[in-house]
Design a binder for these strands. Structure first.
Lengths: 134, 134
DNA sequence: CGGTATCCTGGACGATACTG
DNA sequence: CAGTATCGTCCAGGATACCG
């Protein structure tokens, strides 16, 4: 919704990837497999180390966890702090910008938990009717 | 964030795809390329015909538009009405459930437009520092 | 007008091995 | 401990052609 809002002529035809679209940028980031889960852990625990995150998000590969964290760091949403001990110790935390993302994500998560039952019911009905036809 | 909230033991290790996760379901849907844009059009115009949507979302292929609309219909978020005239006339609109999605999506869109400048600035700084290193 | 059907490609994602 | 490097797979998404 409202992807074109406040950008340029919302009522005119418009390719989201031609001009820069803020919502597209953000959705491309949070739409991937692990970003929201990582933000969730950082939101709950405040500060997390790499291995800690790996354990919380069981199933994430090292490659994807690193990639996700790097992307978030690059976007200024997560801060990465390296302590030059041996062995190295790295801590991840939300930046102030990252904190501001919590509320909109919470809204979306709340919608999900509140309405998932309706969605699943609709899905089942749709599939049932489809098989009546075939 | 909060992907595991209210599901099962948020503090325990957990693979988002093993058990059903409402947030994953929803993110998988709205994270794709066209869903949010389609919902935006339907939110603004109330009722849209197929070709109308195609023109608004320039760049969308027939396949993807149909696929996106079908998925939303299956989830009970969009209602599809066929008028058996010749040639056929099909109208799409948000269901009541779809209406409730507007607010959380609006929150996310507003975050995007409000903070995109900070994100882009962070990105540029990150890339600049990276190239200093290499 | 409002779609299906088919083929194809790039990139997201995962598995595994290795390293400062 | 916290990664990097490499390879392989799968599928979202696009191009094109055809249809009731």
């Amino acid at each position: 919704m409202a992807t074109g809002q406040g950008v340029t002529e919302p009522t005119t035809s418009w390719d989201p990837y031609e001009r820069g679209c803020p919502s597209r940028d953000v959705l491309d980031r949070i739409g991937d497999k692990w970003t929201v889960l990582v933000l969730g852990e950082l939101g709950r625990h405040g500060v997390c180390r790499y291995t800690q995150l790996r354990k919380q998000l069981s199933g994430v590969s090292e490659k994807m966890l690193t990639q996700t964290l790097r992307a978030l760091e690059r976007d200024g949403i997560v801060r990465r702090t390296v302590y030059p001990t041996v062995p190295a110790r790295v801590e991840y935390a939300l930046t102030p910008l990252g904190q501001t993302l919590r509320e909109p994500l919470r809204a979306l998560t709340e919608w999900s938990t509140r309405h998932i039952a309706e969605v699943l019911a609709a899905r089942e009905e749709y599939d049932t009717n489809a098989e009546r036809v075939s």
